[in-house]
Design a protein around this nucleic acid. Structure first.
Lengths: 77, 77
DNA sequence: AAATATTTATTGTTTTTCGATAAATTTTAG
DNA sequence: CTAAAATTTATCGAAAAACAATAAATATTT
């Protein structure tokens, strides 16, 4: 059970690089990387807001709740 | 421009009270209230996860990005 | 009105972001 | 393949904020 940050999907859709997005959002590339690779344990709304603004999307496009109990009961992945 | 926490909508949909949800999620009613009334400035994924689990919903059901520039240009609301 | 539930406020602790920076790794070009 | 560029990982410290605990105020319900 976890929250996934699907930044890469929206970045691909908007054809924007990590470096460019970091600059536009106003955080360091290093911190954006942490967010993008699911290493973050929380997020400030100010950051989420800037990401949504620059990617022209909704929080739901970036955050996904994955419930293990809800997947297939055959243990795949 | 802001991030809205639409907890009340899902709570109504699931017919669950604030006290009950707080207990199931594992935070104090006081802290849930802060979240529910848009007083929070960030959220831990562990909390968002527990909310999604108990409300059987996705982050996108609870978080909304409102862009002022995107609304009507006549200053309504 | 009384009981219950929710909100607001305060204090202290702990967690985590985030900047800054550097090093390691990966990806992209030539 | 090699070199450059981009990205990721890792530290460190500082600032921000969650969260618990608690109490008081407010609102809701019965």
């Amino acid at each position: 059970m976890e929250i996934l940050v699907n930044l890469d999907v929206m970045m691909a859709k908007r054809k924007i690089s990590a470096g460019e997005l970091a600059e536009r959002v106003g955080i360091t590339p290093a911190n954006l990387s942490i967010l993008k690779n699911n290493k973050a344990k929380a997020i400030r709304f100010s950051t989420l807001m800037a990401l949504c603004r620059e990617l022209r999307c909704q929080p739901g496009d970036l955050l996904e709740f994955v419930d293990d109990q809800q997947e297939g009961s055959d243990g795949r992945t």
